[in-house]
Design a protein around this nucleic acid. Structure first.
Lengths: 401, 401
DNA sequence: TGTCTTTTGTTCACGTCTAGAGCATAATGA
DNA sequence: TCATTATGCTCTAGACGTGAACAAAAGACA
């Protein structure tokens, strides 16, 4: 919320308009024509000409002919420059990670995928090696990296993943990368960010994103931006006592909502071993068995859906979102027990909320959200006046030819 | 988040800097000298000269000599212009209302106070008459009015106050004032806004404000601004099932947190009649009796404090605020049973939150918050490029002499 | 008392920015 | 082939903030 949004001098004004133009290109996936961008941003044609020219000279944009033409002179589509900025994005899950390279506009190329045994060393060592390698390969083009992790993230990238036993793990250090260059974020918050930019929560003023996996995370999207707490540790809706239960939670509190909804809850319901970030396949099996008509599995499914719905209602009462997007296991619960979920939610709503209930829907991006969110978080930092000022090609001012 | 914050032309740049200067004057209560403002806003002295001159000419500012002098040439203090903008602010409670006039900088003059019988007609009729009278008296100087009400507010100023039986009451219509000119807001959200601007949550990035009266309301402050829901109906933290109870709530949900904390909960605990927005004196009596050592009253007090603490912990887990400000009965509970409250809160926190727990404190503005917040909400709309463009004295452009 | 020092307000030449008009360009459609 | 249409490019005009030079006003000091 600083560094951008407020030009006070003519020079900052130019920088501000460069950011606006690049943001527009990025947010639309580099699909809009230059004439369309000129209209959308309410720029004069001359201004747009100067801006695009400058950005192309700085190797931030590259124009290509538009695939379709209307009547008049054909226009161009500004997109990523072949020597333009590249963002590395990694999605670190409980059992594996994925690394990708992203360019302006959001195109993603997967670079590597690998499993791990759950220890910080085995998870972060090889990932760090891969990231360092690709960072060196891209050189100055690599403007930053984003890493999504399945747990709360404190300032400086220190991560807790309670069910893996990670305790204040210094992710940038174990990756062997400078903390300022790597941005570490919570997977749920990042998935919410991606959903706000390229998914169902796009254009939504107040939205709620809830991701269910082993744990349950949720984040509120306000004005296209997920709310991070004071220490960067928002997105922990799962650890409110919304169910009336009194079970102790590994997080340290009791009666947490997350205990009754996630994969662990399904396994526990069926009398199966649970915890430690293992058993995702078995949880999926339970869903399949419930669909096949098995009574015990169906009861476990319904219980989880009911608890999810009740919690969603509580959050809707509190925050009044327009849309509630469910991802991970939450999307499965919605698909397979949508009626139970909806009724439990309805019963928990205040009367005034029932008149205009939010849309509850599976997320658009699914399991891809965290990776995309990690990318977006880095572009959010880059697409600012400060971020662009650090772009190397900008070091040659006055080289107007 | 629109209309401000992004200048794209030189003209908008000027408008933007006018807003920045007026905001700075308003936020500091018209105490800062011009030289100090010039430094704080990082303006050139010449720019500040032109800006202040233009604003004075437009009858938005008026400079007076600074009371204290340092070494050099004495500087001036820009403050409200004697013919400058005026905001009407009203605080409508369950049993009475108060109307005040406010000028730039936040000085408040109370215009009228009156009781009412709880019906929309008796509450809003006389208030509307008073507001219309003062609006006419101020003429074009009256740029808007803010009204704080003790219930959820939907778009267009329609209000529900469940324990008074108000059901979608059209406040602007009953006041006899145009909906665009009156801004209706929830008392808790407005108190939070005031606390963020002139109270304990000033400068706090993420803060939580909780107001306890008959009902319990809470609002999250992010970046100096309370979060309003999609329909403007945020600030309803009281209606989440955080206690494990199963009592039906007048709001339509069950097990609401608000049922176990507010004045009604105290009365119920003591076996006294409750509901209907009556009995505030008796609730205060219970607090006094608890302090005098009466066991039953002390138990009721402790139960309310414990439930308040547990709910605060849940919200802290979810949102990770830096500061939690309590107002109304919440401040009383903090003063009289602070230890119980703190321990209940601590027990409900996640381990990672316990390392850096938020400061829990009574609010700075107390019962005055809602009125001040109603004022701030109107100034927030006025102190924008759009708001200032509508200011009448601005109709004479180019009259540079 | 008179002068120096310090700080602030005012004025103006200068550079930067965007707007807008006029012209050039490149495709469509008859 | 030629008129039409939409777009890109270039140049001038207008507006803004900067920064330096100058003026003003009060305290500090001899």
């Amino acid at each position: 919320m600083s560094g951008n949004g407020g030009a006070t001098t003519s020079g900052q004004l130019r920088a501000h308009n460069r950011v606006r133009l690049l943001r527009a290109v990025h947010d639309c996936g580099a699909t809009l024509t230059r004439s369309r961008l000129t209209r959308d941003l309410e720029l004069a044609r001359g201004t747009a000409s100067v801006l695009v020219g400058g950005l192309a000279e700085d190797e931030l944009l590259h124009e290509e002919p538009a695939p379709e033409h209307a009547r008049g002179r054909p226009t161009m589509v500004p997109g990523p420059h072949p020597r333009g900025p590249v963002v590395l994005a990694a999605d670190l899950r409980e059992d594996a990670w994925e690394l990708a390279a992203c360019e302006l506009g959001g195109r993603v190329s997967v670079l590597a995928v690998r499993g791990h045994d759950g220890t910080p060393e085995d998870a972060l060592g090889p990932l760090g090696a891969a990231m360092r390698e690709h960072r060196a390969r891209y050189g100055a083009r690599a403007v930053g990296a984003g890493v999504s992790v399945a747990g709360p993230v404190a300032a400086g990238g220190r991560v807790d993943v309670s069910h893996l036993g990670w305790r204040s793990v210094d992710v940038p250090a174990l990756l062997g990368l400078p903390p300022g260059w790597v941005r570490v974020g919570n997977d749920t918050a990042l998935a919410g960010l991606a959903e706000a930019r390229r998914g169902l929560l796009r254009g939504v003023e107040v939205g709620l994103h809830i991701h269910v996996d082993f744990d349950l995370g949720g984040v509120l999207i306000v004005g296209g931006r997920p709310l991070e707490g004071a220490g960067g540790m928002g997105a922990e809706f799962g650890h409110m006592p919304l169910t009336g239960g009194a079970m102790p939670c590994p997080c340290g509190a009791t009666g947490c909502w997350a205990l009754e909804v996630g994969a662990n809850a399904l396994l526990r319901h069926m009398g199966l071993p649970h915890g430690g970030g293992r058993g995702r396949e078995q949880a999926e099996l339970i869903l399949a068995r419930a669909e096949a008509g098995e009574a015990e599995a169906a009861r476990a499914l319904a219980a989880a859906a009911r608890t999810l719905g009740r919690g969603v209602a509580a959050l809707v009462n509190a925050h009044d979102p327009e849309v509630v997007a469910l991802s991970g296991l939450g999307a499965d619960l919605h698909d397979r027990a949508g009626a139970v979920l909806a009724e439990a939610c309805r019963n928990g709503l205040m009367t005034i909320r029932r008149e205009r209930p939010p849309l509850i829907t599976p997320s658009a991006l699914g399991r891809r959200g965290s990776l995309l969110g990690a990318m977006e978080s880095v572009f959010d930092a880059f697409l600012t006046t400060d971020g662009l000022a650090a772009w190397p090609a900008r070091d040659t001012p006055g080289s107007r030819v």
